Computed example of a mutant assay.
Amino acid sequence: MCAAPAGKSIFAWKTLNPELLLCNEAIGKRMGMLISNLRRCQIQPSATANVDSKILAEEIPQTANLVIVDAHCTDQSLLAKGDKAPGCFHHVTINSNANRQKRILANSAKIVAPQGYLAYMTCTYSTEENEQVSESVLSKFPEFQPVTVPHLEKYRSHLREIPCYRMCPQVRLGAGAVTVLFQNTSDGERNQLQQIF
């Protein structure tokens, strides 16, 4: 989800060697760069979609072993790069993004197969867009449990009990990012992906 410009998609393909990499980007004007980067890096087998996450939740429920949500956010980390991010600390902007993230994550959770994973990440610092959004996933989907990632433990957030990891620019880990990994602990079989594209 939120796949453009494809950096995390390409990394996932190279690292995990999936049967199929499906990259969805709901914002139409970002599709060109997504497709271009996938072609340039010869990512196959892959497919792209330009639909709202709700459509995928309805059409391909419980089909994915892993759903990565690189969520649209207030982009507060752009400031560490020296870029501008007007309004990125305004409470209205933060709340709007947090609500959008909750909706995307709720739809994404429905796509995750039993025993599959949901990876959530942002490039912003607000607890409303990170820890609080993660807590909403756990509240709405009790079958999902947060997963401890041992090699990220030194970056674990002290702001909540759940294992949420904050990679900050002062520790030379890029401009900043936050991530949480969830597992769908329910029993059952993964649904087969039908041809819908």
Score class of each variant (00 low, 15 high):
G28N: 14
D187K: 10
N17V: 15
Q62L: 10
H158D: 14
C73P: 06
T63I: 09
V180L: 07
R39M: 08
C23N: 04
D52P: 07
R39I: 04
D83F: 13
K54C: 12
I10A: 07
N184G: 06
Q44V: 15
A113P: 02
A80L: 03
T93Y: 12
M31P: 05
P61G: 06
Q195K: 08
L159H: 09
N191E: 08
A4G: 04
A49L: 10
I10K: 00
A175G: 10
N65H: 10
Q62D: 09
A57S: 06
L78M: 14
E58K: 15
E135C: 03
L173S: 15
C164M: 11
T74Y: 00
T127N: 14
F182C: 12
K54M: 08
P150D: 09
P150R: 04
Q195N: 09
A80S: 08
R40D: 10
D70K: 03
E153T: 14
R30L: 09
K110H: 13
A64S: 06
S77I: 01
V171F: 09
Q194R: 13
R103L: 02
C164R: 01
H158A: 15
Y155G: 02
R190H: 12
A80R: 03
Y125G: 06
V180D: 07
V171T: 14
Y155T: 11
N65W: 12
Q145T: 11
R190N: 10
I104Q: 00
N184H: 05
A119E: 07
K29W: 14
Q132P: 00
L118Q: 08
V67G: 02
Q192H: 01
T122P: 11
Q170F: 15
G28F: 11
E135V: 04
S108G: 14
D83C: 12
G28L: 08
T48V: 11
T93C: 13
V137I: 15
N37D: 04
T148H: 05
E189L: 01
Q42C: 09
I111W: 03
V69K: 00
S9H: 07
A71Q: 02
K81L: 14
E59G: 04
L118K: 08
Q192E: 07
S139K: 13
L34K: 11
K84N: 14
S36N: 14
Y165T: 03
N50R: 09
L159N: 04
T124L: 06
F11Y: 13
G7S: 06
S96N: 13
H151C: 11
L159Y: 04
T122E: 10
L21K: 10
L118I: 14
P169G: 15
A47N: 05
C164D: 00
R100F: 05
V133L: 12
A12K: 04
N65V: 07
T15I: 06
H151S: 12
L118A: 12
L78E: 10
N37G: 05
P142M: 05
Q183H: 03
D52H: 01
A98H: 04
V178L: 05
K29N: 15
Q115D: 13
F144Q: 07
A109K: 02
W13H: 15
N191W: 05
L105G: 01
N130H: 07
V147Q: 08
E189T: 00
N24G: 06
L138P: 10
